[in-house]
Amino acid sequence: MMTPRTVGLGIAIIAAATSFSVLFLPAMTAPTQPSEIFRARTNIENEGRVLYIRNGCIGCHTQYIRPSDWAFEPLRVSQAGDYIADSPHLLGSERTGPDLSQEGGLHPDDWQAAHFHDPRFVRPASIMPDFEFFSDDQLRELIAYVQSLGGTMADARVARQNYWKPALIAAYARGQDANAEFLYAHVPPQWATLPNPYPADANALAQGEFVYEQECINCHGPVGDGNGVAAPYLNPKPFDFTVLKRQPWSGGLLYYQIMNGITGSAMPYFKEDLESAKIWDVSNYIATQFIGTAPTLPKVPIPYQGAIPASREPKGNKQ
């Protein structure tokens, strides 16, 4: 017989039984061991995490990589041990923006600062709101948190960014031509001397223009001189392609830098974002639009100094 008492009691029993099976049992058996990439956050990173929560970043950004995800770099499927210090959890349910579980160290701090000021400065098609209202301290805290995402794997990437940044700043300070030579010397010779294998025909240039506008324009500028809207935030400044009118260069050189990025500078790698053909197209576009002359190679070969992203890294950088 259904009375308020039987219904209330019955539902209460169901709620108690299911709470045991789907809440308390998993809580009691939850893994407490940290994963191999786990590390405790510092105070400033925890402050940044509070800002991340308060500003609702979880509404668009997830923090876990699934077994079925791919096209992630680095691709590491998240484990329960990654999250043991997270309270509240920030796994997220909506991926309008990229997953951030391995965001730390993918970009240097100056890229992050430009991005928070106006995400479209470095990502022209982004629909993320501006966070201009952050104070300098808040910006530092949030960047510190973002750079910690990924645990010890992020630390290794951050260390690599920090290792290369002073060298890149110094090269830029020596002048545009010295800077170009420095960058050239760090591209493997087989790439630095490789001509673009594809002709710069109308189709290639149209596609290259599309890619340039989607990805490159706000740093390197509409005329390729490195004076995009993001430039004031970045150190070293974005590269001025017109310098290559009087410097050695090749299609392969451009391809290599776009593909791999320049660790320590705001130049990210595009190996996940762009297919090979699109990178060759945008190389052709940059060459025709901003350099304008046939590729030249140095009369005396420049000695190879090791690729920036891949070698001469500080200790503990292996993922």
Partner: peptide
């Protein structure tokens, strides 16, 4: 009856500071 149980447990109301447990358990409860 059920909502009173779900609301109090699900909001982890005995932890006023952030209303959360830790790690994957927090996600499962949430």
């Amino acid at each position: 009856a059920a909502t009173l149980v779900v609301y109090v447990i699900g909001n982890v109301m005995w932890k006023p500071a952030n209303g959360a447990l830790a790690g994957m358990t927090d996600a499962e409860w949430a």
